[in-house]
Amino acid sequence: MWNLFQIELYKISRRPRTYISFAAITAIIVIFQFAFKADGESYMNLLLQNVQDNFTLDKGKAINGYFMCYIILNTLLIQVPILIALIAGDAISGEANMGTLRLLLTKPISRTQIILVKFAASFVYTIALLIWMAVMALFVSLAIFGVDDMLIFRVKGEESQILQITQDDIMWRYFAAFAYAAVALTVIAALAMVLSVFAENSIGPIIATVCIVIVCTVVSNINVPIIDDNVKPWLFTSYLVGWKGFFYINSTEDGVPIKGSLENWPAIRNSLLILVAHIFILLGIAITAFRKKDILS
């Protein structure tokens, strides 16, 4: 199994398309950083237009490395599923398309092993992509924009909020957020893997994964009670942005942020459990379908 896993990683590492995602992420982050370095104040003015009458803020200090990373993740983590689908959607269907699947399956390896190893390799790829994002969005931003307390702008119900997190209370939140994002994106990888089992070329599962994510995200954002109660709790997309929960900090009655606190840890934990359940269910479907599949390609 370990041998098989190493081979799978080797194959992924040798494919040029693997690096498209890294290049895309780098390009997007660099553009963000350049734009904020050049004209970050305009963005802050826009962000603060509802609250600036009763709130004074040193905008220069607010745009720091931590804040930049938050803004970048907020934008990028919606697009990353497409990049994950690029690799996971190709896992089985790409082999079928190349004709290597039939050769692979004539080797003394079980089909379950193949799915597990390909899933594990997709997971490693997801982690690598997130680490790269962390390096570019967090550490490079810290180097460019410096370190300071972090402000989070949030709309909760009808009211706009600004949460302040002191700089010594931020880094662990990022690690937790990236770990959460890894789980959320692994659901995408598992979904793409399931679709990959049924296809004979990579384009179909990649596009289908992206379409499912888009449709479910749209449904997750429809604010109608019947959907809120009956549909949203079952959609994985309702939990994809749950990483933000690590930045929602509790405050005292006087409005003083409580260091190390989380506003709603049970909600984060439940979201994580639901995402993990999605992974197991999707993986189970992929294994069952692949074991039954006749290889005719």
Partner: peptide, 13 residues
């Protein structure tokens, strides 16, 4: 050992 129809392999390797 087997060859099934075309001998397809990993073209990028």
């Amino acid at each position: 050992g087997a060859i099934i129809e075309r001998p397809d392999m990993y073209k990028y390797l």
